[in-house]
Design a protein around this nucleic acid. Sequence first.
DNA 1: CTATTTTATTCAAATTTATTAAGAATTTTT
DNA 2: AAAAATTCTTAATAAATTTGAATAAAATAG
Lengths: 364, 364
Amino acid sequence: MLVYNRFYGNDTGIVTKYVVFFYFRSIFVFMAVTIKDIARHSGVSVSTVSRVLNKKPDVNTETELRVNKAIKKLGYSPSSVARGLVLKRSNVLGFVVPDITNPNFPELARGVVEKARQYGYSVIFFDTNHDNKVEKEAINLLRSKQVDGIIVSFSEANQVELGKLKEEKFPAVQIYRKSPNSVISTIAIDNVDSAYKAVKYLLSLGHKQIGHLTTGISTLSGAERLEGYQKAYKESGLVYRDEWIFSGSHCADTGYDGMKIFLDQKEPVTAVFASHDLMAVGAYEAVFEKGLTIPGDISIMGHDNIEISRLVHPKLTTIDTYKDKLGQAGVELLLEEMAERSRINREIIFKTELVVRDSTRQIS
Amino acid sequence: MLVYNRFYGNDTGIVTKYVVFFYFRSIFVFMAVTIKDIARHSGVSVSTVSRVLNKKPDVNTETELRVNKAIKKLGYSPSSVARGLVLKRSNVLGFVVPDITNPNFPELARGVVEKARQYGYSVIFFDTNHDNKVEKEAINLLRSKQVDGIIVSFSEANQVELGKLKEEKFPAVQIYRKSPNSVISTIAIDNVDSAYKAVKYLLSLGHKQIGHLTTGISTLSGAERLEGYQKAYKESGLVYRDEWIFSGSHCADTGYDGMKIFLDQKEPVTAVFASHDLMAVGAYEAVFEKGLTIPGDISIMGHDNIEISRLVHPKLTTIDTYKDKLGQAGVELLLEEMAERSRINREIIFKTELVVRDSTRQIS
DNA sequence: CTATTTTATTCAAATTTATTAAGAATTTTT
DNA sequence: AAAAATTCTTAATAAATTTGAATAAAATAG
């Protein structure tokens, strides 16, 4: 065995090391075993082997045994590609998300992949990085790969594309983010009710001035959660002020920015409901910077119950959205669509659940 | 348009709502357009169309135009499946991780998927949930799907399987976690050096009693980081005590447990280096519980620079491992392997980088 | 100006690996 | 010997690529 190491630096400043091993072993060129080989080896025809493989009738028990022995011996595994060509299905699903590094999506992805596996499907995964062009590209690629169905989490921009799929009865479901005009079947959560529940909880703790860090009306979920906030206020008979609402984005920094503004107001809010946990955690920083405490001086609530929420100090009160269940339900709905191939759209809305932790408190 | 809503509860206590839309539109059954249709439509043979598609020579400019027009008109896109059958490649890569909800993997995944896309490859994704059986299953599935190569992050258990792939010259690389006996090519980080750097930094701040929260020698990276810790101590001339080392796991709670033990010792450590950020953040909780401050009373350092590390308060000093770059490099190495098809193993080791934040301080 | 060679296009047929329907061969039953 | 039941084989099919042959046009030679 010959070994050599090479160290070198590259323009990123990362130094990499090469360790190369040369193996001198029996030379063995991999040749794929086909159904023909099995047929020849077991002295039957390919169609008989096919019947054995697919557990169809009209096969002698003895023949079956012989064929299975050959399959095992030669380590044969049918080519999904050839099978897909004939049967026009691939047993592969497509899954397209805007950003896997957004903490909501890994759990969703796990739910999807796990459930798909249970049903015998593999999953081709795309991360579009919020790029509409890539979204479109992904759809085309997945179709040319002949996936049996797709699960997407698209922005408004490409809903038209999804509508086209529906026209063709190509199985597709939108997950996590709602399909704005319900052009395809959807799995989502009841954002209005969820935010309503959150704000109602804060009101029940005695808070009357509740700020809201929203992602703005640019995202549907943001708009819905804002609606829930408003609904809770309306029902309580109290009124909120416009300056208690701050529009941020999907990242934590905007929570910090918003909270800073809230704290600088003459009559600061006593509680804040953030549209997602990351903003809530960002808000923490602004509170600490002012030398204030949570929940002593101000109560903070998030939404989504991502992992971070139970790791920060104090642990964040939030709303669980059952992301893995959403992913699983997405696959199940997709499989239904694949079976039916109708143009009916279903919309399955999950209720969410309040998770009370340490970032909120009762005030007199 | 007919709409009906259905509400129902299920055993998980989640209430879901059904909104079903019935569309009555022109009935349109999707029929795939094939190369034959293009040939017929443009009055040439399929082989000519194929030559146009693959930009091969020996095609009249005028013919090419005619064919391309037909392609556009009929909205034709070649079947990757049929193409895969003939060419024996699918333009699909496999990517298998133990746990996508582990905060290190999403970034890795993004790097892999993004780079693969740039090179025209799609990625079939598996999450094994640390199940060795599922790992094996994934390999078999990916092979029957005729992926062109795979990127895995396997535990020691299935290294034998990977070795078999190598025997067959099936392109495969191990990423993030090192391949223990280098049975296949690897992209990893220099864990020893990385931990060495971390502890050396703490020593440079004046800390002489540094605790280490390790994942134990059960994981290779844990063992290597422990080695780095020991190396730094050895070099400094100081000695560490065995009770300053606590073995935990991949989850945050064990950081809390370990830190509690550290703090209860008669002569507590003044700094702690955790093998990964989650443990470090878990340790925070134990410190706060005692009414102590970070870094006032104790400095804490993590490893991996996951998103959480800059969201906690104080922001965690840690080590960046360039996870997205690792993912990208994984794809590039895999593509090299695919081109060469040799039995040579490469090992590319990335250096890591110290990220100083607010959880560590100089002591006199 | 015809005959031959060269060049540029284009086509028909084989190939890839599996499934499946139709029909042939064999065995069993009537 | 005919009919029925069982089991297997042949050939078509899926949608592309590829090879060697065919055709047509252009160039060269006699």
